[in-house]
């Protein structure tokens, strides 16, 4: 299978998978709370439904129209660049994880600008909070990834994953464990899950992420939710792949790629279930306690680098 095909496949996987993972997390939460919950495919149906509705656009209409596109394109591009199912994606020598990091940051910037463009108090509030948290997760993310890069001295995921598949014991190294722990916190913060943010809140004052996207409706909202789901799907798959690189296809043949896809889905689903269970067990942190959590993740990442360098 050629690299371009695999890249396209990954974009599709992350888009559909992201929606499904959102559904899985809602389902797990519902079950853990003793409810039946909506079917796992509910987010898919909702996006399809919203697509057919008219889009109300308030102030800053052109920005509101552009934000979902920017979010979808940057996230899709990131999903195409990084190897998730196999390490033969298009231009795999350029599969640098930093590109994905900054593409995701671009998506956050677009969302925040959309929040400010409407000129409402809640939009600005959400943008301000989300950007503050994004600024604080960025260091933990970059240093955590650098910790994973230490053994191979490369931020190139193709190199990293090839080595990890060949040396599976590296997964139990303390540096790896610490880095993955810190990245887990980063992923929870970046996807706006509890205890950092409550994705299903109904009280505006406690909102972080939702406050930015209050003004979208109809087709705009459909595209935006798809973008957010893709973001979640990408971050979860990336973390799952980095934490447990088993099964990543190292050749372009059909069977290994198929195995890679299935295992990727399984790993991401397990991770999503875990995060959903964390959500059930934890209460939302006060906004100004979140920096403590992120600082802890940052220190974990630094420890991971130090330990990785010392114990090599």
């Amino acid at each position: 299978m050629s690299g371009y095909l695999l890249s396209a496949l990954q974009v599709l996987l992350v888009a559909v998978g992201g929606l499904l993972l959102t559904g899985v997390m809602a389902k797990v939460r519902a079950r853990a709370e003793g409810r039946v919950g909506a079917p796992v495919t509910q987010p898919l149906r909702e996006v399809a439904k919203w697509l057919t509705r008219e889009s109300p656009r308030a102030g800053g209409a052109s920005v509101l129209a552009a934000v979902p596109y920017v979010l979808l394109v940057t996230t899709g591009l990131a999903a195409a660049v990084v190897p998730l199912a196999g390490v033969v994606t298009a231009g795999s020598s350029g599969a640098d994880v930093l590109i994905a990091v900054f593409l995701l940051l671009t998506g956050s910037l677009a969302l925040a600008l959309g929040g400010l463009a409407t000129g409402t108090a809640f939009g600005g509030m959400g943008a301000s909070r989300a950007m503050t948290l994004s600024a604080l997760t960025e260091p933990a993310l970059l240093v955590g990834l650098a910790a994973l890069a230490v053994p191979q001295r490369s931020m190139n995921l193709a190199t990293l994953l090839r080595h990890a598949v060949a040396h599976p014991t590296g997964m139990a190294s303390p540096s790896h464990v610490l880095a993955v722990a810190s990245l887990l916190v980063v992923v929870i913060a970046e996807t706006g899950r509890l205890p950092v943010d409550n994705p299903s809140t109904h009280l505006e004052l406690t909102m972080i992420h939702e406050a930015m996207v209050l003004e979208y409706g109809g087709r705009d909202w459909a595209l935006l939710s798809l973008g957010q789901a893709m973001r979640l799907g990408l971050l979860f798959s990336l973390l799952a792949t980095l934490a447990v690189p088993w099964g990543v296809a190292t050749s372009g043949a059909a069977l290994p790629v198929l195995v890679g896809v299935v295992l990727l889905g399984a790993k991401a689903a397990v991770l999503a279930t875990g995060v959903a269970l964390i959500e059930v067990r934890s209460a939302k942190l006060r906004l100004f306690r979140v920096p403590e959590l992120l600082a802890a993740a940052f220190v974990l990442a630094i420890l991971a680098v130090v330990v990785g360098v010392v114990a090599r």
Binding site: T169, A172, P174, S175, V177, E292, A296, L300, L303
Partner: peptide, 19 residues
């Protein structure tokens, strides 16, 4: 591997104490 993990755990716990 065990010594690595345990030694790192000692330090990680110390840092967690600050948190």
């Amino acid at each position: 591997g065990l010594i690595d993990l345990a030694a790192v755990a000692v330090l990680a716990v110390a840092v967690a104490g600050l948190w």
